[in-house]
Nucleic acid binder design. Structure first.
Length: 437
RNA sequence: GCCGCGGUAGCUCAGGGGCUAGAGCGUCGGGCUGUUAACCCGAAGGUCGCCGGUUCGAAUCCGGCCCGCGGCGCCA
């Protein structure tokens, strides 16, 4: 016979408790978020999977003796069951509380290591990330990440894109070879993917429009607030598209994501919700104009180089909404990048930057569609031609001009919520100094 | 990879050649029927990151190493 893992009745989730339930009896299951004992009165702030909390009051003379004893002894993060009557009370946080009639500790907890003092230690919090993610603050960001990806799917599905899942184990480098994580693959060496792009390019000859949401890995020892060694991208690739088309697609996508998050997280975002309610078109400046801004603000950028951290911040501080930088020098871009016919030193490539000093969140552009041009480019850059034969071969069978982009999930959410570090957006962030827990 | 800061109780930190290494929070025991990170009294809790050196004596000084944090570089 089937037996539930929940040995007690549950009538509501905490998020469902409202003034309409005042006077009604409810039974709740959750975790002890805070506990305060006042002799014959115990206050327990309960939270559950609905990411809401409610205060439960347990009076010694209103519950069975054993129930009171359990309430008095239970520790933070123990799983408990509470039955009681919803009451309005100005003394309760949020104005509502549950006047408890029955209490049971379902699963005990040891003393909770994440004390208020522990919050001062970033290293300790990430050491205990498996516990820290129970905090409401972390939950909010992770929930936003889930909504972010859901909204992206809605966006692409409504436009007829096909979702693909590109391989994680690869042998063909997409960016610089030095940044690949090697993996023992039987008697060969393989790598963890840096991007789904090359595989998306193969798939557009089947579906015309594809997208993917998945992980990317970069073996760079970058100690910054915008780098993870394992991060997620939303990538899309479109047949018959130009750089301009792909810029429009990015504007539409990011606007959709921003408005979705602003609507769902208006309460935590406060005034910032309006700030991120952006709409197309976004400002567009050339690389040369970006260099001018940097130089005007006192940062030295020589043509053909990427912007340093300070210059990037300075440029991004000039804007209030996301913006594009296009007409990048070809030397600063990857091997697959197409270029302007009238100015071969200029790539058909653009970056999408978040404003307010945040900087780059997405890169996109048109790819080389001609097999011979691509071959020459690979040779010119000294890349291992044999590994790219399949990638070139796609182009020998009717591959039209096409373009695509990849937008960083963590970086974009970092900007939306104005977070200190991209690692706050990852369930278990991976950085050069951290692969655990 | 470079520069800087740090590692002392479960957590945050103080101490900076010499009695038994301290405080707050948390935990445990006691008290308290309206708290909001409750409060009051008491107690337990330590490989002072690791290795070596100097010294009568090292948590403390010196050298090396490891780890973490912040920034830069690299990079999407």
């Amino acid at each position: 016979m089937y037996q539930s893992a929940l040995p007690v009745p549950r009538s509501h989730h905490i998020a469902e408790i409202s003034r309409e339930l005042v006077g009604r009896e409810v039974s709740l299951v959750g975790w002890v978020y805070r506990k305060r004992v006042h002799g014959g009165l115990v206050f327990i702030i309960l939270r559950d999977g609905s990411s809401a909390t409610i205060q439960c009051t347990i009076h010694r003379d209103r519950v069975p003796p054993e129930d009171f004893k359990q309430a008095e002894k239970t520790l933070i993060e123990a799983a408990v069951w509470v039955q009681g009557v919803v009451a309005e009370d100005p003394r309760a946080p949020g104005g509502l509380e549950v006047r408890t009639t029955r209490f049971r500790e379902l699963v005990p907890a040891e003393p909770w290591p994440l004390t208020e003092d522990a919050a001062k230690s970033v290293g300790f919090l990430y050491d205990k990330r498996h516990l820290w993610l129970r905090s409401l603050r972390v939950q909010t960001v992770l929930r936003a990440r889930a909504e972010f990806c859901k909204a992206a799917r809605e966006f692409f599905e409504a436009r007829g894109f096909v979702e693909i899942h590109a391989p994680i184990l690869i042998t063909t480098a997409c960016e610089g070879g030095a940044t690949l994580f090697p993996v023992e693959y039987f008697d060969r060496e393989a790598y963890l993917t840096q991007s789904a792009q090359l595989y998306e390019e193969a798939a557009i000859a089947a579906f015309e429009k594809v997208y993917t949401i998945g992980p990317s890995f970069r073996a760079e020892k970058s100690r910054t607030r915008k780098h993870l060694t394992e991060f997620w991208q939303i990538e899309a690739e479109v047949a018959y598209a130009t750089m301009e088309d792909i810029m429009r697609l990015q504007e539409d996508l990011l606007s959709h994501l921003c408005n979705h998050i602003a609507q769902r997280f208006g309460d935590v975002l406060g005034e910032r919700a309006d700030k991120i309610r952006v709409k197309p078109p976004f400002p567009k400046i050339t690389y040369d104009e970006a260099v001018e801004i940097a130089q005007r603000k006192g940062y030295d950028v020589s043509w053909g180089e990427d912007f340093g951290a300070e210059a990037e911040r300075a440029i991004a501080e000039e804007f209030e909404v996301p913006f594009f930088i296009y007409d990048y020098p070809l030397v600063a871009r990857s091997f697959y990048c197409a270029w302007r016919e009238d100015r071969p030193e200029i790539a058909l490539s653009c970056d999408l930057w978040a404003p307010e000093g945040f900087g780059e969140i997405a890169t996109g552009g048109e790819r080389i569609a001609d097999p011979e041009v691509l071959r020459r480019r690979i040779i010119e850059l000294g890349l291992p031609l044999e590994q790219y034969e399949w990638y070139i071969e796609i182009r020998r069978y009717g591959l039209p001009r096409h373009a695509g982009f990849g937008i960083g999930v963590e970086r974009t959410l970092r900007w939306m919520f104005k977070l200190d570090h991209v690692r706050m957006v990852a369930l278990f962030p991976r950085t050069p100094t951290r692969v655990e827990p």
